[in-house]
Computed example of a mutant assay.
Amino acid sequence: MPHIHIRHYPRDFTADQLREIDEAVTAAVTRTFALGEDAVSISLEPVTPEDWQAQVLAEIAARPDQQVRRPGYVNES
């Protein structure tokens, strides 16, 4: 614990980009939760633009109480 699951549009990441994501996210989580690096896991899940509404935006709308940050493109109405 904790596990960070990042969904994103499909893309190819370089080894350096993956290392950057790993280091930045791990540093923030270990500092905030006061845990060692071995306690953190991170996964990346590509989601096609066609599936984004049903898979990601639907979850954002259904779980507003669990969000730390909402995307600026979500309609607030």
Rank of each mutant, 00 (worst) to 15 (best):
V56G: 10
L57M: 10
F13V: 09
A27D: 14
L18I: 09
W52I: 12
L35R: 12
E50F: 08
R31C: 01
I60R: 10
A54C: 00
A62I: 11
R7T: 02
V40N: 13
Q55R: 10
A34E: 04
D38G: 12
A62N: 12
L35N: 04
A34S: 02
Q17D: 12
Q67H: 15
A61H: 11
I4G: 03
P2E: 09
P46G: 09
V68Y: 05
R11H: 06
H3A: 02
E76R: 15
A28K: 09
E50H: 09
V56P: 11
P10R: 03
I6T: 01
E20Y: 08
I60M: 08
W52L: 13
M1N: 07
Q17T: 07
L44F: 03
E23T: 14
R11F: 04
Q66P: 00
Q67E: 13
P64Y: 07
R19F: 02
D22L: 11
G72W: 12
T26V: 08
V56F: 06
A58R: 12
V68R: 09
Y9E: 02
R19L: 06
H3R: 03
A39N: 12
T48V: 01
D51G: 00
I42D: 00
D16M: 01
Q53R: 15
N75C: 01
L44M: 06
Y73I: 10
V25W: 11
P71W: 04
E50D: 15
I6K: 01
R63N: 15
Q17L: 09
H5T: 07
Q66L: 11
Y9V: 00
G72N: 13
R7I: 00
P46C: 07
V56C: 12
Q55P: 04
Q67F: 10
A54H: 05
R11C: 05
A15S: 15
E59P: 02
T48G: 08
Y73E: 12
T30D: 11
R19G: 02
A24C: 07
E59A: 12
Q53I: 15
E59Q: 11
P64I: 07
I6M: 03
Q55S: 08
V47H: 02
A15V: 13
R31Y: 01
A27F: 05
L18R: 12
V74S: 11
A28C: 04
V47P: 02
V56I: 15
W52V: 13
A34C: 01
T32G: 10
Q67I: 04
Y73M: 09
Y9S: 03
R19C: 03
A62Y: 08
M1I: 10
T30R: 14
L44N: 04
V74M: 14
H5D: 07
T48K: 03
A62R: 14
S43G: 01
D65S: 12
W52F: 14
L44K: 02
